[in-house]
Write a protein that binds this DNA or RNA. Structure first.
Lengths: 245, 245
DNA sequence: CAAATTTGTCTATTGTTATAGACAACCAAA
DNA sequence: TTTGGTTGTCTATAACAATAGACAAATTTG
């Protein structure tokens, strides 16, 4: 809102920096409260750039589906607030976002059996090289991708979980079909990085976007690890909320 | 590691994308395990770009202190792994990083009394406009900035906490001097965004870097809010780790 | 309807980014 | 000391990013 200072010759084009600022201001409610963006000339003045540079930023956000421009009328906001994804002992995708989004959906991209890498083995508590089942999924809220995840399960205990997921389209239900009626989250690490080419494709992001990466271990009620998952959230569309108990 | 696909005309210069990839690969241990980077020609081949483009990326990382090039010998890694910052009920900066870093330090940038914004008021449980004390701090580990934070306290209850912080250089000790012997974290939200100009300056980042933004409320043992804090972590240097209990 | 406001399109110029090739400077090892 | 591998510097050219100005096209307001 203030005379935000943009970085020149930083390797990040001004139009992209401005697009990121506007997207963020919309997500936090700083801008677009009335449903419309200020005129291009005003934005150009605010950021001390040429009107054409602002137009490039708006064009990018229009491509993303955040804005919509109409000749003679103005530029309008199409999507507003960020979703808040809760991380707690009992974290489940649809339940957590249920009250914020109209519809939620988790799609299976791929499932396969592979041998456990060192990281996966450590987190699942099995020897490295043991067979594990990997599920690649994408979760959407209101038709827009919110996160993608890769989950690993011990193949000896969870044989057939891929098919169970195919039937129920839900990790919770698939686990239930495998005899796990309850599970809790043991630990989560969070980092942030620029989206990879895969992230951009699968989450329908723009280049230069940011993803929040979480790595989590879920355990059954006896404390045995049952699932290790690496998730990537579109940082524009979601924030993570940790509730202590 | 693989033939990572770079995005052209994305508003993010190729040299910056490559710098981000290399930095990330070093942080995760994918690259530079032997302490040195592959030759420039090899990297140029891997990313399918000109050698000069790779050189720009390396120059940026050299400026950041991540790499060091020596003519005739090669390019070497100066900093390796990311710190892991724990978020739990009892989160304290120096205690959490103590075992990972040699020295930790929190410096006071500014302190002032102001009237509570709506957000601050909501989180501290005081009426909007009430006087609050704001502390702006930067925390360092081994001489490198890790995070910056803005904290707010109810001025009526914590008068003089700015001076107490000046004496002890620790939030925990300053609170203790104000009669709060224990406090717990009630909630934390996490988001990720590109670093602002201020972030870049105070955390000594490069343009286009990512920050993890956390907003947390700490309460005393009776459950009364005592501190609301907005922190920004350099995503290259730290990950957040949430332990369920 | 006329005027004011706003987005859309076009031309032109300058600075930054990326590519290409050549060679110098330096280091380590044969 | 010679050779091969590596980083450092220079020149030149093409593609992209940013600035500047002008005017068209569409909408709203008076």
């Amino acid at each position: 809102m203030t005379g935000a200072v943009l970085e020149r010759k930083s390797g990040v084009a001004l139009w992209r920096q401005i697009a990121d600022l506007i997207r963020s201001d919309i997500a936090t409610g700083v801008a677009g409260q009335d449903g419309r963006l200020p005129p291009e000339m005003e934005l150009a003045k605010r950021y001390s750039v040429n009107r054409h540079t602002v137009r490039s930023a708006i064009a990018a956000l229009e491509q993303e589906g955040v804005l919509r421009s109409e000749q003679g009328r103005g530029t309008f906001v199409r999507r507003r607030k960020r979703l808040s994804y809760p991380i707690a002992k009992r974290t489940r995708f649809s339940a957590g976002l249920g009250n914020q989004a109209g519809s939620t959906l988790t799609r299976l991209l791929e499932s396969m059996e592979e041998s456990a890498s060192q990281t996966v083995a450590d987190n699942l508590g099995v020897p490295a090289g043991d067979p594990v089942i990997r599920l690649d999924t994408v979760s959407e809220a209101d038709g827009l991708p919110v996160s993608r995840a890769t989950s690993w399960f011990d193949a000896s205990r969870f044989a057939g979980i891929d098919e169970a997921f195919g039937e129920h389209a839900s990790i919770t239900k698939a686990l239930s079909a495998c005899g796990v009626t309850d599970y809790v989250r043991k630990s989560t690490t969070i980092e942030a990085r620029h989206a990879s080419a895969d992230d951009i494709r699968l989450l329908r992001l723009s280049a230069g976007a940011i993803v929040l990466v979480t790595r989590a271990v879920n355990t059954d009620s006896d404390g045995n690890p049952i699932q290790y998952a690496e998730s990537r959230f579109a940082a524009d569309r979601v924030e993570l909320k940790i509730e202590s108990d």
